[in-house]
């Protein structure tokens, strides 16, 4: 089953005089349960592509369909609701709301979706448990390590059961041990909950673990390989 369909998408930035073709004719789709990584040199358009898939930005040309929604047809406020319901985001850093505890951060989107309190609490407990932070319910982000913060962010993204999770360089600020732990967790969630993960990275450790590697260069896909090395 396709969760994301990208048809001949272009994205041009017209900042000053110069025109930058950040995405230059990409056609691509993601299946339910993908554990895909987008790689490529700096400036090749990884972040731009993820932003387009997540509905944070609109393409200059082409079409993106996510869970049956044509993103270009959604109004700005509908796009926000769309993201809340269908997309989980994990950013490189500053993912969490500093004034909320780990548990409150995990519950934040469920709170926006007005989940009943008990259901929310049960899901929060379950997720904190599965990211290995069952004992850090009441810690503020500032009391957590970078790796722990990223794990909370993954738990939050996962909480409302989105279509897929987008992670733009989630390990970029982590040491190798924390990065490994985070990948272990994402892999486990991918297998246990059949959650689709799409992330970008520069990190060889991440590439090694992916089951699909898409390589970008100058806004074009130059390779899309499925590997079978399960750890």
């Amino acid at each position: 089953m396709k969760v994301v369909e990208i048809n001949d998408v272009y994205k041009t930035y017209r900042d000053t005089e110069v025109e930058v073709r950040a995405i230059n004719g990409v056609t691509l789709s993601f299946e339910k349960g993908d554990f895909a990584v987008i790689v490529g040199p700096s400036g090749s358009g990884k972040t731009t592509l993820l932003n387009l898939i997540g509905g944070l930005d609109q393409p200059t040309g082409g079409e993106i369909i996510v869970a049956g929604h044509h993103l270009s047809e959604l109004r700005p406020s509908e796009l926000i609701d769309f993201r809340m319901e269908h997309v989980g985001f994990v950013f490189q850093s500053y993912n969490l709301i500093p004034v909320l505890t780990a548990a409150e951060n995990v519950g934040f989107i469920m709170n926006l979706q007005k989940w009943p309190k008990e259901k929310r609490k049960a899901r929060t407990d379950e997720l904190l448990e599965s990211v290995g932070l069952a004992d850090r319910h009441n810690s503020r982000p500032s009391q957590l390590s970078g790796g722990q913060q990223q794990r909370v962010a993954v738990a939050r993204a996962l909480a409302p059961r989105p279509e897929f999770i987008l992670a733009d360089e989630p390990t970029a600020n982590l040491d190798s041990k924390s990065a490994e732990t985070l990948l272990d967790i994402m892999e486990k969630l991918n297998q246990e909950e059949n959650m689709t993960f799409i992330f970008s990275t520069h990190d060889a450790r991440v590439m090694k673990r992916a089951r699909r590697v898409i390589t970008l260069e100058d806004g074009r896909i130059i390779s899309d390989e499925r590997t079978n090395h399960n750890s």
């Binding site: 609701d81 993201r83 985001f89 709301i97 926006l112």
Partner: peptide, 16 residues
């Protein structure tokens, strides 16, 4: 600014 960007990304309406 960054935090606001993150909040709107993950689904918080601007009005809220």
């Amino acid at each position: 600014r960054r935090e606001f960007g993150m909040l709107v990304s993950i689904g918080m309406q601007k009005s809220k």
